[in-house]
Design a protein around this nucleic acid. Structure first.
Lengths: 164, 164
DNA sequence: TTAGAAACGTTATAACATAACATTTCGGAG
DNA sequence: CTCCGAAATGTTATGTTATAACGTTTCTAA
């Protein structure tokens, strides 16, 4: 089985639980927004940055807090949920359904639906992008006469660092 | 790929959207509870019956309503959530994470974690029990140094009946 | 028969999410 | 340049899902 890419929520062992470097991801997203004629507003940027800066999936209300701190502007739930809707629709972020929380996505250019590995201990996550897996799932669904439009694949457990 | 079993939420085409026959499933569960020295209380039975009687995944508050109707006793959320916790832990039911709703499980004797296909139109579901798939997912996780303890696999789309 | 544990009841509240409608902002047509 | 329409955001209120904390009942096994 071929892993097309791995995006880990964790830094190398020596720097665990440290935030991601959002810069590279943000510029990539800006580029995509230009290509797609989308407006990457301040709010959308801020939310996505917060997600990239976090070592864990963030709840919507955590983001609301984060925005309050970041820009001293109170933001109400609908605002954040709309922003998340935009980010998820564009593949810039994803919702972890088993946690009601959100993570930034490593490969927004491919509009796939990744597999997430989520550590129940440190809460860091790993994003796996595996086309073969997606394909198999689609096959299975088709076999049951099912036309698939979306997937949720989440593996819960213990990450390599927390196992040690 | 071998499908070990299929449990559909739907009846044959002629009887769609009709409730399941809980009887067989219930007696199987009773048997398992005896074997496992568990107490299948009235409440637990009622909740599981409600789940089997439904053609769709049921929310916790829907179950609360259902219980109120069924036995004219008001039941508060914690009660139902505890009951659901029991049923899910024992593999008698499962939570559909992408819907915050619950379904009865077809094969409680194997404590697997099935794949669910959920129709966004009629809301019926299909339970696929595919060991090979589970294995692959575990392999993938292991490859990332991840020790898996649980899985959520949900495919959203349109079922065969609603496609036609 | 009676302790102890398991199940259930009760009250309150936390956490997650959206409906409905007002206002602002932005980019393009004129 | 300005002003129109659409997109984005603000605001208020409320709906939905879930759990904490603690009291009471019920079952079972010694």
């Amino acid at each position: 089985m071929t892993l097309l890419s791995i995006q880990s929520g964790s830094q190398p062992r020596s720097a665990r639980r440290v935030a991601h470097a959002p810069a590279a991801h943000m510029s990539r997203v800006m580029q995509l927004c230009q290509e797609r004629h989308l407006r990457l507003t301040a709010l959308r940027q801020q939310v996505l940055e917060l997600l990239w800066q976090s070592a864990r999936p963030m709840g919507a209300y955590e983001l609301i807090n984060g925005l309050g701190i970041k820009s001293s502007r109170a933001v109400a739930p609908p605002t954040v949920y709309r922003t998340l809707d935009f980010l998820v629709t564009q593949g810039f972020a994803a919702k972890i359904e088993s946690r009601n929380a959100y993570v930034p996505c490593a490969h927004p250019e491919r509009c796939h639906e990744p597999i997430f590995l989520i550590c129940g201990d440190c809460e860091e996550w790993v994003e796996l992008d595996d086309l073969r897996f997606e394909q198999q799932l689609a096959e299975q669904a088709a076999h049951a006469g099912f036309r698939a439009t979306g997937r949720v694949v989440e593996v819960l457990g213990t990450c390599v660092d927390c196992s040690a």
